[in-house]
Design a protein around this nucleic acid. Structure first.
Lengths: 209, 209
DNA sequence: AAATTTATATGAACATGATCATATTTTCCT
DNA sequence: AGGAAAATATGATCATGTTCATATAAATTT
């Protein structure tokens, strides 16, 4: 039982590594699940015993990078800076760790992290989003006065929207070292942080549907 | 030649109508291109002579609705209201026209309108986004003082991001009549409009990459 | 250790979006 | 009108993500 359990993990690792290599090399669309199986020395259908599908595989890779990035963020101590700077660092460090996956990030994010997908239940993409949002919520609470109302679900949706927008921009950013992304990130975060204190004026719901 | 050219258009219409019906009925993923072909009384491959792919077909349907919506917006005279209200009306009227397609809007938007896709060139999705952004830019220019700087590409990206976020929220909004979406829309637009006047502080690009 | 049960790997088969050589129809030329 | 050339329709075929009955191996029981 010991040997086998380890072998399972090893196979899982082998699949992840094969996928990572191929995705980086030939992109997400350019890599077939058969390619991955071959590279990982398993049968065509076996990877589906380890991951629900190709996209989840890619997401798992992204997830690992972001987990590492989070560790680095915590280590850096930059969560102690101003809210805006802490959020900036959180995202920027994430981007740095996502660099190797920039080429195919779009394919993953657009179909898996998109807010349109909100909800096949407790799968891996949920985890990633929820974890990120909990971190952000924690930072907000840490940096605002206790009187400030907890950010609403709508507000957090807004944050996630902005975050995906930044990721999207970054994935396509042709400026050297993706500097332009930092401008966008700065602008987006200033918007967001600014909105936290603004008291929400009531919206009349008699408008258009 | 006359009769045939009309027949072409008629076939195109038949495909669009078949797709619209099936998408509304069984969703985007639940409808196969073969279903559409059958419903439209054409061969399996024929629809690919009229549309580059299944998604473009869905996008064309969305596009028609939004074109109609734009007409109604212009008629309504609400572009004369405050910038925030004009933008609100522009989007809200769009949502009203997209209602029949709410069930499958996500599948289309996420893969076709997502900012990740920025650029297979001048295809239909480009058109939709560009048209929408031009309208918005027009509204901004109309409502701000000539001294206000033209919104940058980054700013417009931010707008598009927020717009997609609203669409995503709306597509899943379970509140009666999707009222919650209007709250989000209001919040998002207040953010955006507010940002137009704020002078962008320079961002030091020495930060993380 | 043999037998049984359970978990896992396998690759053939399936579903479906898309392609493409071929057949059919339309348009153009004389 | 008759035939050549171009445009269009067709459906068999392909590519690929995913499933599933079956085979194989591991764990458990006797």
């Amino acid at each position: 039982m010991r040997i086998t359990a380890e072998a399972k993990l090893e196979t899982r690792q082998r699949i992840l590594e094969a996928a990572r290599k191929l995705f980086c090399d030939k992109g997400f669309a350019g890599t077939t699940t058969r390619d991955i199986a071959t590279e990982a020395s398993i049968a065509t259908g076996t990877m589906f015993n380890y991951f629900p599908g190709k996209e989840h595989l890619a997401l798992a890779i992204i997830d690992i990078s972001l987990e590492t990035a989070y560790g680095e963020f915590v280590e850096s101590g930059r969560e102690g800076e101003s809210l805006e700077e802490a959020l900036f660092a959180h995202i920027a460090i994430g981007l740095r760790h996502l660099r190797p996956h920039r080429g195919y990030l779009g394919d993953v994010v657009e179909t898996t992290l998109s807010p349109f997908n909100l909800s096949t239940g407790a799968d891996e993409s949920e985890n990633l989003r929820v974890r990120h949002l909990e971190t952000v919520q924690g930072l907000i609470e840490k940096h605002t006065s206790p009187s400030t109302p907890r950010p609403s679900a709508v507000t957090m949706h807004l944050y996630w929207t902005l975050y995906l927008g930044v990721l999207a921009f970054w994935a396509k950013d042709a400026s050297p070292n993706q500097e332009d992304t930092l401008v966008l990130l700065d602008q987006a975060l200033r918007l967001f942080v600014g909105s936290l204190n603004a008291n929400p004026k009531t919206v009349e719901i008699s408008h258009d549907p």
